[in-house]
């Protein structure tokens, strides 16, 4: 009985058509082409990539000038960072009294020390490589709600350290 059943199954297997089938991929290609067009539109060709941190909201502007590869400075509500290194603590966007110079209230000492180090480093590189030169440019990414008071102090200290060309990073307004 069992043998008979097996024979019947074998008959069925023999009769089966070879298991080749074609996947219908037209709709998948359609989807990929749409995705490709979208990604190509938002593809960045800028050599410099600035990723603002989560705690930072940059102001929106219509300026379309692409950033260049220069020193990056971040001024958020929690602190001042130079090349991702925290140099000054801020409490809700305000400086502590001890952070500014007693003789010059616009001068942030810790920021000056770090920027001065950066200037020395850039000048050493420039002395070794004739193609590079120190041009005193710095990109400042600052929280949009911060008052001009703190930004002025940062710009003043940068200027004193030798970074006189401060560029303000903004989010492009579409």
């Amino acid at each position: 009985m069992a043998l008979g059943r097996r024979r019947g199954m074998g008959k069925y297997i023999d009769k089966r058509v070879a298991s080749t089938f074609k996947i219908q991929i037209t709709s998948m290609v359609d989807m990929f082409v749409i995705l490709l067009v979208f990604l190509l539109k938002s593809y960045s060709t800028s050599p410099v990539n600035i990723n603002p941190s989560d705690q930072l909201t940059l102001p929106a502007s219509s300026s379309t000038k692409d950033p260049t590869e220069v020193l990056k400075m971040v001024v958020s509500k929690t602190g001042i960072f130079v090349d991702d290194k925290k140099v000054v603590d801020l409490k809700d966007g305000a400086l502590a009294t001890g952070d500014v110079d007693s003789n010059d209230t616009q001068f942030i000492r810790a920021l000056y020390s770090e920027l001065d180090e950066q200037v020395k480093k850039s000048r050493t590189i420039a002395s070794q490589n004739s193609e590079l030169e120190f041009d005193g440019k710095v990109i400042m990414q600052a929280e949009r709600s911060l008052p001009y008071d703190i930004l002025r102090k940062v710009m003043y200290t940068s200027m004193m350290a030798g970074y006189s060309d401060v560029k303000i990073a903004v989010m492009l307004k579409e």
Binding site: Y43, S44, S46, D66
Partner: peptide, 9 residues
């Protein structure tokens, strides 16, 4: 891909 483009003034 970049969803927010950062520029400078």
């Amino acid at each position: 891909v970049v969803f927010t483009r950062i520029t400078v003034i």
